[in-house]
Design a protein around this nucleic acid. Structure first.
Lengths: 201, 201, 201, 201
DNA sequence: GTCTAAACGAGACGGTACGTCTCGTCTTACT
DNA sequence: AGTAAGACGAGACGTACCGTCTCGTTTAGAC
């Protein structure tokens, strides 16, 4: 199947895929090291071995660049198995994984930066939820199957999970066993307790 | 013989309380209007009718200034009544109230900015929880009274509430009836549903 | 084989000659109007229609900028004619001309500023003497020709002339007929007198 | 009529002479160490063990303070002896002595600073010539006695001497034997030569 | 021996300029 | 045509002094 060369797109020298990748990689590294506010486009370009104008040719601003760099590093959404506990667990584990490193912080910076520009507003925070629709379907399926209430509010349920994880990461509180207890809470209504550990049902 | 006035403290011209207040007020206004990243110290100083050096005399940086300005505008913690549902509701209503306006966004910007400085890190996010200790005590009291499990994890329970609200505000999803349903979830284990509205017990 | 273009030098956008010239011109204007101490780099940049960073990209400091601006406005050295009186007269007339306007004052400010930095020290005062070597040669030639003593101290002789003019300008005393009388003094040993005017020999 | 103590003037605490002296001394020290432009009133006050307001109570500005500090350290004018060579020598030696240290540079800074304020303009440069009138009288006396031309231009003659010394000091050229040769030039019309040394007449 | 008013130290104040930094755009020469 | 280099206009950063202004504390002469 030849996706081939779009006659409109392929005039002149084509975009260099190496540069593109190098820029995104450099962005992620710099983000790791100094954070969003101290990241400079010039620094990224230098580290990528690229001219600053090449960055600006493909991304309109620092925030757009960072947004794509962060998005491109997110974990792939898991495939649903039909076991609602396991599926939600997998989604949350993904999020925890994603939010390690600089991503949580960066998302917040992006979000707060964007919230004062009506247009760009929703984008960053939705990154964590590229697969939100799929997850909601999965939850609603569970409702139909009877594993959850039939009219479960998948939207809020998901926000409880994601919000709690994001907030704990932001406050630097531990998140290891929180995933399980969140699942217990939102799937079975089990109020979180301290103590040995949540026992399996 | 009580000297009263501390000889160490009263040398030189005393700090002008009007300037101090005017600066914090101006900071809040500018924050409202243009947001954290577009706020400038010079702009704040001008609006407060104050020299830039007066701002820097008392706050070491833009972020410290904003942090205090935001903190000084938070709602006062409610007094516990003994009814766990009502108490948690009151705390969450306070948070929702605080996060209207620019505070949610600003907290995120501050938080993300700070997370790359080990020392200043925890401050901003803890602002929302100046009264966290009191609320935890309140929850644990409820555990002792039997309104909640005796070994309830007050820490996580609180994070579920705060995190969810913060996240929904950040994503611009509605928060009006979420407070009630969160209380239902964390106090009674009621899984959130769509539908007419949560009926009273 | 002449490569011509130095591969090291010609990377990136070349320096804009208009900006460079505009900055020097603006510096001279501002100097004229408000003097050295009240000259502001930002003011110069604004008048030149240039960003402040462009000024600082090419001159490390206000004093370096002013030094070059002043230097670039000095009169070109006159061509020696062989008549020692006429030649010295021409040199001194040049100096008087240069020191009109803000240059005398500026040189002093620069000089006094610089004298506390060992490295930059000599520069400003030497500005007046970019052509000092040539003038000394001229004087020594006159010595060899017999128009002046054979072992004339050209150095001191020149300092007498320049120093006297600079000092009188600084004290705001008139300098119109001083040039002639200085020449009388240093070429013919005629002690300066008040009175109608120096008669021609 | 008892002038005695003016009832208007002598209420309250009298001016502290120690502070006054300490401020002038500190000014001279700081001037020596860092020069005029880098001298700060606050630094002077601190070194003098004095509040900044005490400085500003008695001197209207940094330049006025420095002017007085510099003036108060000048050498006392010599007494005329009747020997014109010796008298001029003594005056010039005084000037050379005064201009060692930071004074030459400071005078220039003050002068250049002042030249853009019409009122304060002439003061600094005239410092060197507090005794100018006396010296002019002395030169004119020599004219009347026949040691110099009867209509000698004392004004210009003095400027030649002072200007030359000031300029050489500013350029950091040696001044040791220049005094003698200047006297030779302006008293006897002897054009300066290099060589063994000026022989006595 | 008070009384009292000016001078004092300390240092906060409103300003202003500094020199540095980053943004996002523009302009070259090279490939 | 796309790129690396890097100059450009703009404007905020945080620092340093300026000269003014309050404070509370001496301190010496007037009463």
């Amino acid at each position: 199947m030849t996706t081939g060369t779009d006659p409109e797109r392929s005039r002149g020298r084509p975009r260099s895929p190496e540069s593109h990748r190098a820029i995104l990689a450099a962005t992620r590294e710099v983000l790791d090291e100094v954070g969003y506010v101290r990241l400079t486009v010039e620094g990224v370009a230098t580290r990528a071995g690229v001219g600053k104008s090449t960055v600006y040719r493909w991304w309109p601003s620092k925030s757009a660049l960072v947004l794509e760099a962060v998005g491109s590093a997110l974990a792939a959404p898991p495939r649903p198995t039909g076991d609602v506990r396991a599926d939600i667990r997998a989604v949350l584990a993904n999020i925890v994984e994603d939010l390690r490193g600089p991503l949580a912080v960066t998302l917040l910076a992006l979000g707060s930066d964007a919230l004062h520009d009506a247009p760009a507003a929703a984008e960053p925070v939705d990154l964590l939820q590229a697969d939100r629709g799929a997850v909601q379907d999965m939850i609603e399926d569970a409702g139909r199957r009877g594993d959850l209430p039939a009219d479960v509010d998948a939207d809020l349920l998901l926000d409880v999970c994601v919000g709690t994880l994001l907030y704990r990461l932001l406050c630097r509180r531990p998140t290891e066993d929180v995933v399980d207890r969140l699942v217990d809470l939102v799937v079975e209504g089990r109020i979180p307790r301290t103590g040995p550990e949540t026992e399996p049902t």
